[in-house]
Design a protein around this nucleic acid. Structure first.
Lengths: 171, 171
DNA sequence: CGGGCTTGGTTCAAGTTTGAAACAAACCTA
DNA sequence: TAGGTTTGTTTCAAACTTGAACCAAGCCCG
């Protein structure tokens, strides 16, 4: 089958997108490295933990929520644990399991650095986007995510809504 | 000054954006690693070289075009050179300078793997975007890039249009 | 029960990225 | 034209990422 190349408009959009994501990740990483002493991903992990009941999540669920591989998460949590921002706990009901818990120190870092982070995100994105554009950005991003999560693996019985896979909350 | 937090809509857009970029970079990296034996960034570097006169660019200009740091580029080019896809040449007119040149082998790899790459990009993004959304994506991305390139460094005389900094094309 | 498959998580080596420091060439400017 | 600054690029060590391999612990089914 003959290749369906990108149209001129698609090319422009694709290039602009690549440039924007590179610049943005760089800027945010730099800002957070400065003020929180960690890259964006690590900050996100803390943030994800902070907004979940009891501030605790099984590793797999945290990886899922953060859209990263388990291996990457293991490394990150090990570092964050060393810094005292996260704590690990085994899971009595499933001895394979491991739970990451946001410590008070972790929460403090988050509260201290959140304003600066939001300011950066605002300056880079939302301060110059119209409300319609905010909606468009969400739509487009959601579409991309849908396309990629859909075929990450085949659809199995477990992925259907009434049997969605998910680790037990670790009693 | 009191923090201007994100609105609910902005939060949703921001999260969707983060998820989309993570998933997309992962997917593209995996695809290119499979078929071209290199991560997306390296592929982009080759692509950038391929569309410039003589397929050659000074390191600094290539870094600029690729939106990455010089140091990162040095590493990447070293690897690509080892693979024979890029060749380096000194610059007679400015002995500090170094020029990266796409080799024929590099061009071959590009031509061989471009179709698969485009297909992946299409499947992830453009196949489920309306033409209006393509335009919106470009607009939004360009806005972000503008915001971030603008304040990367202070504006100095050299940055003004009639004295724009740029390496000589290396006579 | 007793293998054999799946799942949750970590580990390991190889590859990549980072930011600061190092260098050398080019560019002032007195 | 000597000395100081800037520019183009690389280097280095430390941090991070990757994917495959590994190790238990649960699960399944005869």
């Amino acid at each position: 089958m003959t290749t369906r190349w990108l149209t001129a408009e698609e090319q422009r959009a694709w290039r602009a997108y690549i440039a924007a994501t590179h610049l943005l990740e760089d800027a945010i990483d730099r800002q957070l490295q400065q003020e929180a002493g960690m890259p964006h991903l690590y900050y996100s992990i803390l943030a994800n933990l902070s907004e979940v009941p009891d501030r605790r999540l099984r590793m797999t669920d945290l990886a899922e929520k953060s859209k990263i591989t388990r291996s990457r998460l293991t490394y990150a949590v090990t570092r964050l644990e060393k810094d005292g921002l996260v704590r690990r706990e085994g899971c009595p009901s499933d001895k394979r399991g491991s739970t990451a818990i946001l410590t008070d120190a972790g929460m403090d870092v988050l509260e201290r650095t959140a304003p600066g982070h939001v300011e950066t995100v605002r300056a880079a994105i939302f301060d110059h986007l119209t409300p319609e554009q905010v909606g468009q950005l969400e739509e487009i991003s959601a579409g991309i995510a849908r396309a990629l999560e859909g075929d990450g693996g085949e659809v199995t019985r477990e992925d259907l809504p009434w049997r969605r896979r998910s680790s037990s909350p670790c009693t």
